[in-house]
């Protein structure tokens, strides 16, 4: 069917568009030149520099701890919230629906500063929490939760509540209905929401900047901080390794899937 071929061709063009800058990053990571404007020769020196950098591993670790934890919490909270909003009618429901858009609208700098003011006020009162990875995680969940809820809700709106009713009529309790009927049907929405939340956290700079404390530098903070001396291809080497590792894990996973 020609439409199908056309769709496939178009989609792979879009994928090419998505990976074009990634290809540039990979090429530059092997380029000798510091500024990466022109190709001056093949070199592994940026990978060596990356290995010698004693801080970058710590920053990467911080970034991943924040991304995984905040994604996990926000995905659970967001999915439940979406279910409640779609399934039940309650007071303040429409208020909550509009409140969800606030983290999407509010500019990063405003969100960052207002959360910092909030943390500071609370800490003045009860001596907790200190600015740290913990406060960064709280802040990330606060914007991720909106994205997850909105994505999961788009999926739930297409599900027929009769399916859950049927499960209950067959004697399943709420918990079983949730695990065996609702969640599997919602799953693609949950995965989409979680992926979005994860990449948002991994890349966030401004909110992280304001809610971080000493010793909780993340990778984006480090990379943006290089404006003073210039971003070196070390970061390209790191990006190449990160993308490479993800694709490798993905390929192994796909292979494993096929075996089963």
């Amino acid at each position: 069917m020609p439409v199908k071929r056309l769709l496939a061709a178009y989609s792979w063009l879009v994928f090419a568009f998505l990976y074009l800058p990634i290809a540039v990053i990979v090429v530059l990571s092997f380029n000798e030149s510091r500024f990466g404007v022109n190709w001056t020769g093949f070199s592994l020196k940026w990978y060596e520099a990356l290995l010698e950098n004693r801080r970058i591993g710590e920053y990467l670790g911080n970034t991943l701890v924040v991304a995984f934890t905040s994604t996990l919490v926000s995905t659970v909270l967001g999915t439940l919230l979406a279910m409640g909003i779609v399934r039940y009618r309650f007071r303040l429901r429409s208020f909550l629906r509009y409140l969800l858009y606030v983290p999407v609208v509010v500019p990063d700098v405003v969100m960052g500063i207002s959360l910092l003011l909030l943390f500071d006020t609370v800490r003045d009162g009860i001596g907790w929490p200190r600015l740290s990875l913990f406060t960064i995680i709280l802040a990330h969940i606060s914007f991720q939760i909106a994205y997850v809820t909105l994505v999961v809700r788009a999926r739930l709106m297409l599900l027929d509540p009769a399916l859950e009713e049927a499960a209950r009529d067959l004697g399943a309790d709420n918990w079983r209905t949730f695990w065996e009927v609702t969640l599997p049907l919602t799953w693609p929405g949950v995965v989409s929401g979680a992926l979005l939340a994860f990449s948002l956290s991994l890349d966030d700079f401004v909110v992280t900047f304001f809610t971080s404390g000493s010793g909780s530098t993340t990778l984006p903070l480090y990379i943006y901080g290089k404006v003073k001396t210039g971003i070196t291809p070390e970061i390209h080497a790191l990006s190449t390794l990160m993308v490479g590792a993800t694709i490798l894990i993905l390929a192994l996973g796909a292979l494993f899937w096929r075996r089963r």
């Binding site: 701890v65 924040v66 934890t69 913990f134 995680i137």
Partner: peptide, 9 residues
């Protein structure tokens, strides 16, 4: 992760 995220100064 939340526990490891708590600051140690």
């Amino acid at each position: 992760p939340l526990l490891t995220a708590c600051p140690k100064q």
